[in-house]
Structures are given as C-alpha cells and as structure tokens.
Design a protein around this nucleic acid. Sequence first.
DNA 1: GAGTGGTCTAGACCACGCG
DNA 2: GCGTGGTCTAGACCACTCA
Lengths: 248, 248
Amino acid sequence: MSGATLPTPAFSPLYQQIKGLILQSLQQGEWRPGEAIPSEMDLAARFRVSQGTVRKAIDELAAENLVVRRQGKGTFVATHAEQHVQYRFLKLLPDSGDVREEGPAQRRVLDCRRGRATADVARALALRSGDPVIQARRILAFAGVPTILEDIWLPGHAFKGLTAEHMASYQGPTYAMFELEYGVRMVRAEEKLRAVLPDADQAALLEVTTATPLLSVERIAYTYNDVPMELRRGLYRTDTHHYRNELS
Amino acid sequence: MSGATLPTPAFSPLYQQIKGLILQSLQQGEWRPGEAIPSEMDLAARFRVSQGTVRKAIDELAAENLVVRRQGKGTFVATHAEQHVQYRFLKLLPDSGDVREEGPAQRRVLDCRRGRATADVARALALRSGDPVIQARRILAFAGVPTILEDIWLPGHAFKGLTAEHMASYQGPTYAMFELEYGVRMVRAEEKLRAVLPDADQAALLEVTTATPLLSVERIAYTYNDVPMELRRGLYRTDTHHYRNELS
DNA sequence: GAGTGGTCTAGACCACGCG
DNA sequence: GCGTGGTCTAGACCACTCA
C-alpha cells in the first residue's frame, strides 16, 4: 500500500488476522476445551467481517485440529478427552488392526519426581540447564503384556504439584488430564523414531531380553505458539504391534 | 434426487462432484504431471458452475497433494519429479537435520526380476497368489554409508519391461520414473514400522552386524482410487539417521 | 421452527508472474 | 497490462440437531 521499499510488506489476509484473534481467545481460555465457541455469525459481528471470512479462519483451525465443527450444533474447542479417537498422538496399533480387541491400556506409574533439566532435556523443552522439571516413568500394557515404556519430562513451572498419584488415578489420556488440571493443551507434536536395543532395566520392565529390538520414539509435544511443553521418550515393543503412518 | 428409500440418500455437494470429474481427468491423463490444468474460470465454464465451486474442489485436491497451486501462474498436476521436496515419501533424515550436508543418495540396484506373487505380496497389492510381479532390491547410501536396503514389489501388468538398468539409470526419485515411463502416479502411501534385527544377508549389505537393530518400514503406495501399486519393504539404519514424523 | 454449520452464487478487488 | 490464483462480501438456500 504505502509503496515502502521493505523486502517483506508483511501482507496478511483478513481471515488470517481473524484466525489469530480466535487463536488468542483459545489460548487465553475464553472457551474451555469441549465447549462450543460462538457461532460464525456471532464471530462475524464481533470482528466486523463477513461470515465467509470467519468461516475461512475456522476452516484452518479445524484443519489443524484446534477446533471441531459439528453441523447443526456448532464449533467446539478440541480436547484430548472424550474425543472419538482416544490417544490422538499414539500411532501404535495391534497387528490385528482392531483396537477394540485388546481393550484399553493398563497403566502403571513407576516414578514421578521433581528434578533439574539436563542439557538435552533443557534443549528439547526450551529451558535452561538446571531449570526445574518433573520426570515420570510409566508402563502401558495391552491385554496384560507390557508394551510401552515411557519417560516423560515436563517443565516444572507449568505442572506444579504433579504427583505419581495424579498420573495413576486419572482415567483416560494423560493429555486430557493436562488440560483439566493444568490448563495445558497439547496441540501438535514431533516424533523421531529409531530402532534400538534396551538396557537391562528397560528390558526387564518390558519383559523382553536385551537382544530384542525396540522402537524408540522421542516425542516433543507443543502447546499454542509452538511452545514445547513435554518431552517423552518411549520404547515400543513391535512384536505384536506396529507404528502406523500415512503419507500423502 | 430420485427420492429413493435408501438408508443413505448419498447426498453429494456439487463441489465434490466437480472434484470427482477433475480427478477423473487427472487419472485419464488429460493433463500430464507437471503441466497446468485449466484455469478456475475455464473449469467453471466447462462444468457450468461458479468459480467458487471449482475453487473448493481444487482446494481439496491441493490439500491431498494431487495438484499444486501457484499464484499468478496456475494450478499444476503434482509430480514426484522436480518437486521442491525430493523423495516426498521418504521420512528418514540425517540426525544433523541438514539434508544438503549429505547430498543426494547413491543408489545401487542389486536385483530386478520377474516373478510370481506370494500370498502376502498378493494381499498387499490386491492381486491373486501367483500373479506376475516384478521384484527389485536396491541399496541407498548417504555419504558413502549404506543406509537403506529396499525390496520392492510391483504388479507385473502395470510395469511390463522394467529392468535393473531402467531403475539404475534414471536420475531422481523412482516414483518420478514410474510417472514418466509407465504413467503410474503414486498418490499416497501407508507405512507400518517395526524394530527388527537383520538376517545375515541384510546385515552384510548394510555393513552392520546381525545384532544391530534396524527400522523396518513396510510401505504400500497407492495410485488413484486407492489402488495399491507398490509394496516396499525397507530396512533403515538409524545410527546416523532417524525417521521423522509430525503429529497434529 | 429456530439456530447451526455447509453449499452455492455473483461480483469486486488484490497480489503475483510474466511478457 | 493481462491472466492467474487469492481474498472478501452479501445473500440465498440446504442439511442437520434439538427442543
């Protein structure tokens, strides 16, 4: 517009700005997870734009799984609880393909303690070495067979007071508890996969030998604005399960 | 439309029907990979609908990576060749994260022969046991280090005359060659990952011991209409590389 | 039947690429 | 300057949900 000589005029479409405003409201908790956000018409009036512009903004939020549209009912803040798909971020499936067969996972929390971030944990969580973190270790079993061993690191400042009892008692996805108890909503994640051999401890916990290859899954989960809020190192047994991925 | 008493009236929005028609043209090769498809206005005129309806149809095709939009230039049929991202389906990255550092993969084709589908290969490719297939084996090396060992199965009827020389001589992604030489466009894929130990042959080819855990990646690649056209079993070394995945 | 998201249209204008 | 895709609007109508 101004004819400035800047290399990037930073043109931003209206709907992107609206999307930003809605995102801000989501982030500030104006609407709780699972609740409906205002109708498209209401939002259009609030932001003084047409319904179509709001629609396009919400379309993108829905594509990013931040929000869920339900025709005839409204648009709802996405939640890890009571979502059709339990364990949204877990891609390990039984080889049979039928998740119902094996039923829900049995969880056993082995440990949950306060500590200080090591260099690599600090890097993953965008903290400084020595910052307080909470570390937990647990096992997930399917049909009685221990299948996943997970070590979890959380920034201490955001999860004050988290205890093993907390993690053990809550039914449903851990990420749902994070939403309810700490107001932390995991929005996306990145995983790095490797094939590894377990050490003696890990092997014992998963009831395999130290010669059994396991799938190592390092996950960093992010909340809004790409802020990392969890580091999770998982060891998956892949003798009866596999990690499934879709490419397009 | 007909007011039938079917349980599913099969209501289909106009833009979905338009999408189907465009898909059909893509499939029949009316526009070649890399070429531009007609402008939105042209397509709107051709199908007697508004530009907005065509736009929504193309939006979905673009979201599925079947087509690429370029503002000011047009909409182009997606191709595995000369795409910004080489190896669209390969998620293995060097731990450094910098793909340029290691340069392009060195490829060595070990084998390429005609054969008959075993039961499991037939199931994956929706063939019958004993149907003709082409089987190939090759190694990809990065910076001189053999890193990926792949066995590839292709339905014989669609890839007549494919030879080892073919596979070795072509520069660039194999999927690009499939497009150019056989008119087969891989559109999406599913992968199953496991941690395994190699047998003696595999270990020797990858220059590791039989005690080295490897990432097993079984991929089924599909062309249009979810028709499977390739089964690929890969063994990935994950000592210097990792499989990267994004979740949302 | 009222309210919500979903579709479809027509038209105006903007940003981009290229000759 | 023209043609392309990209944005924005306003309005009509459809499909779904629920009281």
